[in-house]
Design a binder for these strands. Structure first.
Lengths: 146, 146
DNA sequence: CTTGACCTTCCCATGATGGCAAGCCCCATA
DNA sequence: TATGGGGCTTGCCATCATGGGAAGGTCAAG
């Protein structure tokens, strides 16, 4: 299986497969005589695992830990659960921060007539220094979706 | 006012003030004889506006639009509201994606004993190809907080 | 005049991803 | 057999907003 087929089979782009290899998340695969990477079912399995974890918002660092546990047949599942619960904590903190922003903005938008007039409570709020920084001054999207 | 004092007064780091200038978000300020940037109350006001908007999760691009409206005394506040509501839509989509992840993970964590044994439903789920990509395969934190 | 705090510019790193370009390889079809 | 198209390789650049650090100039207090 060449990289393109592996990408289709696992749902991980060829670009990212190379990147995961480069950063050590996955081991360098065999190469064909021409230098093509070749993947077997086991590698596809690993890539699928990685993609699932990415879909659940795990960072590559967390995925490295999860992969190590996955491969360790003696793992205590306590470890897995610990990682997951820490990640849930992260996600919930992010949700809270985003929810705080949303609430504030919704409130401001409701107070704004949305017509042709220039006086706008939203702008008034933005120019006031008091706009709460929230826990830790959190920024915008930077992603396609998250 | 030098850049350090402006940073303290506005809550925007000196580093970011220079960056905002470089990218055209703010105009280059006057310089002292020695080449030091000097800021007056009006600039501080603008920086404070920017910081408030960042705290509410607006991207620099959105902030540029908001700044233009802020400065336009003839602005129709409809425009402001439109930007804010689009941003709320973004935030809500992100919250939904994060919430979906959290729900799935919470579910999996509840199904995992968290003891010494190796069989873990979390890992089992990750290796299955079905782990729903969510709307658009959304990833992790990448921020300090959001 | 020295010292320390401040300023300047320039370069690099982050995290995960996509895009592009130059060049090699493989297979099927003419 | 030749050719074309698609796939593979590496390498570099961009994203977005932010921080870190180095090398060197400036300023004010002691």
């Amino acid at each position: 299986m060449n990289i393109g087929e592996a990408a289709r089979a696992s749902g991980v782009s060829a670009k990212m497969i190379r990147y995961y290899e480069e950063t050590g998340l996955i081991a360098p695969p065999e190469r064909s005589a021409a230098g093509y990477r070749t993947y077997g079912p086991s590698e596809i399995h690993t890539l699928t695992f990685i993609r699932s974890a990415r879909n659940l918002g795990f960072s590559m660092e967390e995925i490295a830990e999860l992969l190590a546990l996955w491969r360790d047949r003696q793992r205590p599942r306590r470890e897995v659960k610990r990682i997951v619960e820490a990640h849930i904590g992260d996600l919930e903190a992010r949700i809270r921060a985003l929810q705080d922003m949303t609430d504030t903005l919704r409130h401001l938008a409701n107070a704004c007539g949305g017509d042709d007039r220039p006086d706008c409570p939203i702008l008034k709020r933005l120019e006031a220094p008091g706009a709460a920084p929230l826990p830790d001054a959190p920024p915008p999207s930077r992603f396609g979706a998250i």
